[in-house]
C-alpha cells in the first residue's frame, strides 16, 4: 500500500474548542491509493478531523498537508488546483437546493472553464450512469429526491472532476442496508477503474470492514489504533472492544472475514 507516500499528512495535531479538548497530538499519514476508515464514538472528533483535512477549520496546533502542500498560507491558484484534486461527500449530501441534479454535477466542471458544454453534458450523464441514477432524474430538484438518491448524486458531484482523493463523511448513514451495500459496491468498482485515495468517517461496521484497507480509531482525544482491521481489533482498548467485538460487531466480522 505504501506506493507514492502520503496524500494527507497530519502532524502533531491539537484541537480545542474553548476549554474542550477534542484532539491531542494526532499523527496520521494517508497513503496513496488506500482507503482509510476513520472511526470513533460520537463527539470523538471524526468530523472535526475531516473538516480540518478539508481546510474548513484550523487546528489549534499542528499541521495538515494535502498532496504535500500546507492548507494555509499559499496562493489561491495553488489552493484551487489542490481542491480540484479532492472530492468531498458531505454527510447530508449538501446538494445545492437551488440547482437541478444536472446543474449540481455540472457546476464544478463549468467552474474549471476548460470544458465545453457538450463535453460537460456527456460527463454528467456518465457520472449519473456511474452512480446508477436514471437520466430522467437529471432535471429534478434536490428537494424531490429520496435520501439514497441524494447520497448517490452527491457522490457523483464529488467525483465530477475525477479527483484523486475522496473524503466521505458518513457515506452510508441514513441508507437502508441494501442501498448501503450498493454504495459499497459502487466505491469498490470505482477503485478498480481509477486510482483513488479515500478517507472515510463512518459508524457503519459493514461499510468499514468491506472498504477499508486501514482503520484509524479515535478515542479519548487520541488516535488509539491505526492499521489493518486484524491489527486494530487485537488492540486492547475499551472503545475498540465495544465497537468491534460487541454483539453486533462480532456478527458483522463473522460475515466478512475469518479471524
Amino acid at each position: 500500500m505504501e506506493n507514492g507516500g502520503c496524500v494527507i499528512e497530519v502532524e502533531g495535531l491539537h484541537t480545542r474548542f474553548g476549554n474542550h479538548v477534542v484532539h491531542e497530538d494526532i499523527d496520521l499519514c494517508v497513503y496513496h491509493g488506500e482507503v482509510l476508515g476513520l472511526v470513533g464514538g460520537s463527539g470523538s472528533g471524526k468530523t472535526a478531523l475531516m473538516r480540518q483535512m478539508l481546510g474548513l477549520e484550523r487546528p489549534t496546533h499542528g499541521s495538515i498537508r494535502v498532496f504535500g502542500q500546507s492548507l494555509y498560507g499559499h496562493n489561491r491558484k495553488q489552493l484551487r488546483a489542490m481542491r480540484n484534486r479532492c472530492g468531498v461527500l458531505f454527510q447530508k449530501g449538501a446538494l445545492f437546493s437551488a440547482l437541478s441534479v444536472y446543474d449540481n454535477i455540472a457546476l464544478p466542471m463549468r467552474e474549471l472553464r476548460t470544458l465545453d458544454e457538450d463535453m460537460i453534458r456527456r460527463l454528467v450523464m456518465l457520472k449519473l450512469k456511474m452512480v446508477d441514477i436514471d437520466a430522467r432524474h437529471a432535471d429534478k430538484m434536490p428537494a424531490e429526491l429520496s435520501g439514497g438518491m441524494i447520497k448517490r448524486i452527491a457522490l457523483a458531484r464529488a467525483m465530477a472532476l475525477d479527483p484523486e482523493l475522496l473524503l466521505l463523511d458518513e457515506p452510508t448513514a441514513g441508507l437502508d442496508p441494501e442501498l448501503s451495500d450498493g454504495f459499497v459496491k459502487l466505491i469498490q468498482t470505482m477503485r478498480t477503474e481509477l486510482t483513488l485515495t479515500i478517507v472515510m468517517a463512518t459508524h457503519d461496521l459493514d461499510t468499514l470492514v468491506a472498504l477499508s484497507d486501514r482503520i484509524a480509531v479515535l478515542a479519548d482525544q487520541r488516535m488509539v489504533a491505526l492499521g489493518p482491521l486484524k491489527e486494530v481489533i487485537n488492540r486492547n482498548h475499551p472503545f475498540i472492544a465495544n465497537f468491534f467485538l460487541g454483539e453486533r460487531g462480532k456478527r458483522t466480522l463473522a460475515n466478512h472475514v475469518d479471524i
Binding site: 453534458r121 456527456r122 454528467v124 450523464m125 456518465l126 450512469k129 456511474m130 437520466a135 430522467r136 437529471a138 432535471d139 478498480t192 477503474e193
Partner: peptide
C-alpha cells in the same frame, strides 16, 4: 482491460433527454 471497461460504460450510456 480497465480501459475496455471505461469504454463499455460509455457505450451503455443513454443519450441525454
Amino acid at each position: 482491460p480497465e480501459q475496455e471497461k471505461a469504454l463499455n460504460l460509455l457505450e451503455m450510456m443513454s443519450p441525454p433527454p
